[in-house]
Design a binder for these strands. Structure first.
Lengths: 188, 188
DNA sequence: GTCTATAGCTAGATAGAC
DNA sequence: GTCTATCTAGCTATAGAC
């Protein structure tokens, strides 16, 4: 069969999807090979250290995507904090496919992947909390309260993904997206 | 060596702990054997269908524990809704070891365990939402709003466990426990 | 860069002695 | 009930031809 030419980004997207669905330990090389259409050897060509390399690249790539879709709208200082948060909500909807996708930060915090990635995962979570806190502060919320609300938003994102996944419905996810911008900025 | 006599409950607790830490696919029979002190053959004696049997028993057992520690305080109709929720918060602290333990409902919703358990996991999540909603209604919250807040509590529990786990701190978990009873019952 | 082949290991599961 | 031994299958990873 003719090898379909996949860009590195397309390969990474499919690897990410596999890890999201099956977790680190559940993503065998056979699955990753099938998902990317690349043979085992090709995978080792792109990722010499094997599965750990793929997971690392997947995590870094997904963080780039997350930044582009979810965080960069928050930096559009030409818009109001509420407008930026609504754009961010749209980014979240796309990034998580309306709640159908899991978060790799959650997935990689389980099992032996946790030991490999825990430092990075902690950094990411703390960064997300900080960024949402800063938006709340821009919206006039006091420093301490903004810090709590930023944490609450990240808690909400992770929690609503788990709930939506377990009940097999995106309704909680969609409700969360609709409500969190005003929750973050509400008067104290 | 003399075989330590473990009750079925103690065995189950250790199996649960293993699944919580390593996930379904990451929990090899070797790990489960080591965690329980039982040889492979003994494990198959107690759980004839192997790993799937163990995971099933672990899930059912953990639900019994959760009911005893977290949900049963909510049924103490001699107390006010707020008092019951504070007792429930204490139960959550014990059940999740102040946020250090993961939730098996989250863990089993990933990978091939998801296919095995998704119906049960959905039931559990929906039941939890319903129970917290009912407490909110008892506290005077309207039906629709109580439904939303019950969902928010379950979202909060799952989310704060993920956040606490990834940043390696129980501070978010402890704050959540302190705040959620009044959040659930607050005036509309 | 992709292929086949295979090493070397560990997985889950089973058999039969005691 | 627990033990040792073992099966088959799948795993990650590597080697070498093309």
């Amino acid at each position: 069969m003719p090898t379909p030419i996949l860009s590195r980004e397309e390969v990474l997207m499919r690897i990410v999807e596999t890890f999201r669905q099956h977790g680190y330990e559940g993503s065998s090389l056979a699955l990753l090979s099938q998902a990317t259409g690349l043979g085992r050897s090709s995978l080792y060509h792109y990722f010499p250290k094997g599965k750990e390399d793929m997971a690392n690249a997947a995590l870094e790539w997904v963080l780039v995507c997350f930044d582009g879709l979810v965080l960069s709208p928050l930096r559009q200082t030409s818009q109001s904090p509420l407008e930026r948060l609504q754009a961010c909500a749209n980014g979240l909807a796309e990034f998580y496919a309306d709640g159908a996708r899991s978060c790799l930060i959650d997935i990689f915090s389980i099992g032996c992947a946790a030991r490999l990635f825990q430092t990075r995962l902690g950094e990411c979570t703390k960064t997300m909390i900080r960024i949402f806190s800063e938006i709340a502060q821009e919206g006039g919320v006091s420093v301490e309260e903004a810090r709590r609300r930023g944490e609450d938003v990240v808690i909400g994102i992770q929690g609503v993904l788990v709930v939506s996944r377990t009940i097999g419905s995106n309704a909680p996810f969609l409700r969360f997206l609709k409500e969190f911008p005003e929750q973050l900025l509400r008067a104290e």
